[in-house]
Amino acid sequence: MTRKKVLVTGGAGFIGGNFVQYMVNKYPDYDIYNLDLLTYAGELAKHKSIEDKENYHFIQADIADMAVINKLFSKTGFDYVVHFAAESHVDRSITDPGVFVRTNVLGTQVLLDAAKAAGITKFLHVSTDEVYGELDFDPETFFTEETPIQPNSPYSASKAASDLLVRAYHETYGMPVNITRCSNNYGPYHFPEKLIPLTISRVVNDQKVPVYGDGKNIRDWLHVWDHCSALDLVLHQGVSGQVYNVGGHNERTNLDVVKTIIRTLGKSEDLIEFVTDRLGHDKRYAIDPTKLEALGWMPQYSFETGIAQTIQWYQENEDWWRPLLKRV
């Protein structure tokens, strides 16, 4: 039987890195190719446990480099592409939008062209609920796959543009694609500029924890391992051309998240420091994942169990995250 070849872009990052490990371990008969440029948020130390496995392969490359990407596709003959690679930090997009457009839009277009020429089985584009804009605080309102796209930051605008390119390649060329849009992820190997790992690292070090505005912005939290299982399902069973929302049923205010971490680590809430709110800071994200659940997926982690596991992981793996603090 011919071995399936799966290209995972951005596999040295947080979600992509967890997905690479998930796929390498679950599918020993698949060859998993991790393509990453290794920018500031990408690192390979997380893959020490799989780097010697026969079905794991690493490629350092820029997804926006057309010549390199075309050569890679023609040489390797991928069956699947799972596309994570993206600039993803909202604050950085506010100060330097151009980098986000190049990677997130042009890079996606380069990959789509190469995948189209190669006749791949499935192109799975991993996006974000931020492309929908924001919700109000009405607990009965949710993002669905039919919610209009209304991005509010340069980051989410660049992701929305890439989503629309993927859709267009399906509609125009008949390319087999899926788009997933997830809520906020958390879990092991999360780069420490993001809210949860930043808070953990600050609290462990008895440093002030910055909270934007009044801390009442709400996010729907999804454990990264639940996200990986959802992507696996969509990759193999998703209906071509369809969008699937991935949510964790775990809405919390940012302030609640910070207080939970402080309480779990046995520290004082005096560490909380309210700071000037982020420009264009969306009020609330919340996903209705009914369409995905109809395929047979359900999240396995409540926020309580997931955040406890995550905090414990960071306590046990300081040698991984402490060197990264200088990049934040």
Rank of each mutant, 00 (worst) to 15 (best):
E293D: 02
L279F: 13
L279M: 14
G306V: 09
T305M: 12
L265A: 01
K267T: 00
R284S: 10
L325Q: 14
V275E: 02
H281F: 14
Y301T: 12
T310D: 10
I272C: 04
S302T: 15
D282C: 15
G280S: 14
R278W: 10
P299I: 11
F303S: 13
L292H: 07
H281L: 14
K267N: 07
R284L: 02
D270A: 05
R278F: 12
Y285T: 15
G296E: 00
D288M: 04
N317G: 04
W321V: 03
F303E: 13
I287T: 09
W313R: 06
F274T: 07
W313G: 05
T305F: 06
K326L: 12
D270I: 06
Q312I: 08
E318V: 03
W297M: 07
I311E: 06
Q309P: 01
L279G: 14
P289V: 05
W297P: 05
E304T: 15
N317C: 04
T276F: 01
W297K: 04
D277N: 15
E273F: 08
D277T: 15
A294R: 00
R322K: 11
D288W: 06
Q315H: 06
V328L: 13
H281G: 13
K267D: 05
E273Q: 13
Q312F: 02
I307D: 11
G306C: 08
Q309N: 12
E316T: 07
W320G: 08
K326D: 14
G296L: 01
T276P: 12
E316F: 00
Q300P: 00
A286L: 07
Q309I: 00
K283W: 12
E293C: 09
V328D: 14
T290D: 02
N317M: 05
A294F: 04
D277F: 09
G280C: 12
E293A: 10
D282P: 15
I307M: 10
E304Y: 11
V275H: 11
A294Q: 08
L279P: 15
Q315L: 09
K291W: 03
W320S: 01
T276A: 13
W321M: 07
I311Q: 05
P299N: 11
L292W: 01
L271Q: 04
R278C: 02
T310V: 06
E304P: 14
F274E: 09
W313T: 09
Q309R: 14
A294Y: 05
Q300Y: 12
L271C: 03
G296K: 03
R322L: 04
P299E: 10
K267R: 01
A308F: 00
R278K: 15
D319E: 06
D282Y: 14
L324E: 10
D288V: 03
K291Y: 09
E269A: 06
E318A: 08
E316V: 00
G296P: 01
Q315K: 10
L271P: 01
S302V: 06
